[in-house]
Design a protein around this nucleic acid. Sequence first.
DNA 1: GCTGTCC
DNA 2: GGACAGCAACGCCCT
DNA 3: AGGGCG
Length: 711
Amino acid sequence: MRPVTSGVGDLPVMPLVTFGESDLLVMSKDIRAYNKKRDFSQTLEPRSRKRHRKATEPVFVVHRHEARRLHYDLRLEVDGALKSFAVPKGFSFDPKDKHLAVRTEDHPLEYEDFDGVIPQGQYGAGMMTIWDRGPYELLNGPWDAAIDAGKIELRMRGSFLRGEWHMVKLKKEKDQWLLFKSRDAYAREKGDAPVSLGLLNARRQPMPQRLSRMEIGDRSSLFVDPEWLYEPMLPGLRLFAEKKGNAIRFRGSRQRIGSVADRVVAALGGTRAENAIMDGIFVCPDDENRPCPLTLDRALLGEVSKPIFYYAFDLLYYDEWDLRDVSLAERKAALSSILPKHSLLVYVDHERSRAAELFETASAVGLRGLVAKSAASPYRRGASDDWLWIPATRTPRRPRGPHKRKQKSARTHSIAFTNRSKVLWPQAGYTKGDLIDYYEQMADWLLPYLKDRPLSLNRFPNGIDGGSFFQKETPEHAPDWIETVLVESKHRDEVETRFVLCNDRSTLLYLANQAAIELHPWSSRRGALESPDWAILDLDPTTGDFSLVVRVARAAEELLGELGLRPYLKTSGAKGLHIYIPLVAGYTYEQVRMFCEGVARLIAIREPALATIERSKPRRDGKVYVDFLQNRREQTVVAPYAVRPVPPASVSTPLAWNELSDDLEPADYTMTSAPARVANLGDLFAPTLGDSQDLLAAIDKLQALVGETRR
DNA sequence: GCTGTCC
DNA sequence: GGACAGCAACGCCCT
DNA sequence: AGGGCG
Ligand SMILES: [Mn+2]
Ligand SMILES: [Mn+2]
């Protein structure tokens, strides 16, 4: 669930430049605009003040600023102030890329060290992190002359941005400039750049102590999707290659790599990075020049003298950047940029649209097939459906048995996950990535309960403590492959709502990326929207004493049993319990509601100290509210296995009736524990989709029981 | 989380 | 560029 | 008609 961290967390970015004593008085008058825009009782940003400063090499800083739109703020120290430009598209090392840079107000020099959050409501609200910094040189100074000339030429010595960068003023637009890399040794061709967009999701973190491999999650028949990368599947020994300064080592295998790989080690020393961790595979050719694992084994033991190649296909760490949240396509671009040109080192290139040809070739040369990898996917530990094995075709040697292996149909929709590391549950520390991973793991269990049901979402883009909003209407900008259903308003003409139908895992993951924590399906399905297929009793406690709810649930179980019904139980995940009775087709919401009202009344009569159907909170008197009004069109109850926006990230969890105990604690069932529970116990809620029940006899019995009670 | 509108 | 608003709304109960 | 509730 939680991504593996080093335990160090986000280190503050270390300044690369420090200053000594000051003896120069500096103050920019443009800085007044800066002070005016800010309320320094609200923001931790530095207040501008007069400042003494030694004449020394000026510095630049680039802030990564997660305001409404992510952008980068390039700030250049000039005459004691930071001249600032907002660069929405960031920096590209390709001289052909010209990115807009908008001049913004000067910032005080102290801002150079600012790394933190600008509070909501303040100017520039959002996270501001130092993305790069270092000394720079203005090659066509002084500043004012350069501004007048409309051209700024910089030589930068950041930890990241290096070499010459030029800016040219747009004639038409005020304050708008173009920023681009000039042609020098630091420039890179497009796709060959380790910087640029490639590091938007990179985390500046110490080298990971522990690393787990990402593995193939499933097999698939060949599909061609330009959002996927196709690589040949090579036989050999999978290893991480790590360069740390001048030290090279291999990680991730128990097998000891001795001096037989010395030539590969030497070659890796030429990697164009201070630090790097690559994922790849040792490969050794046999006498027919085909990759052969047996030959490799013998070569590693020194029994045969064959060259050992390292085929690198992924880059997890670069200099001081953890790249595992960066998309695969970007990681591979960076890898190809830093992998030295050497005969023993091979960059495992990929195909996108021409996968079929690569597949033919791989089959023909006897490889096991292709690995299809989602281009947008991050690097995750363990098996993942972002990596699929596409087995090579073989000429049939024996007749096929009757058993046809069921292959998972290939996922055809790719989703670019954003902000995986954004914390949505601050108390538990779970992130949006954790939510995505959870719904990915639980999709097979959860999707049946969402299928064909109009879905209301409760979205928490700023975490469970930030504001949330409900969403019924599918936004215009949602992907067009998402299924929807048009629902007419019951009473108002010409009012229609296009609800999402979460009918496949792509949609579920898209919704997770939208921070749709709560999933509220209708009780009825497309084609029969007026007819619920389950009845719900919603038990809501008034106080925090969960044992009361448990006791009311027992009373409900007993009564429903007397009525000849088979009810099913789950926690709401928040404070209460939900009881479902699956129904045969054809009942209306009104019929179901009336039945549930009768049941709720009788429970309240039998347990007058515990249960009530009183809707007014103050009159509930601390009792459990048995809510039968949930059985209504367009009214929803949170889906089983859905996560709740509560501090422990509880999950609405199906329970066996014999699990009802006085010390039941719904917060024990969380996003972290639910996958193991369902793997062990299976889906306890499955009967709600099959054990359809008739209410006729139950209604008669209920009336009889009410009559008895009256007497 | 994302869009559109206004500044 | 940046701030902000919007993103549901209905049925049903009781008074 | 208006407010509370989910
Ligand atoms: Mn900014
Ligand atoms: Mn409830």
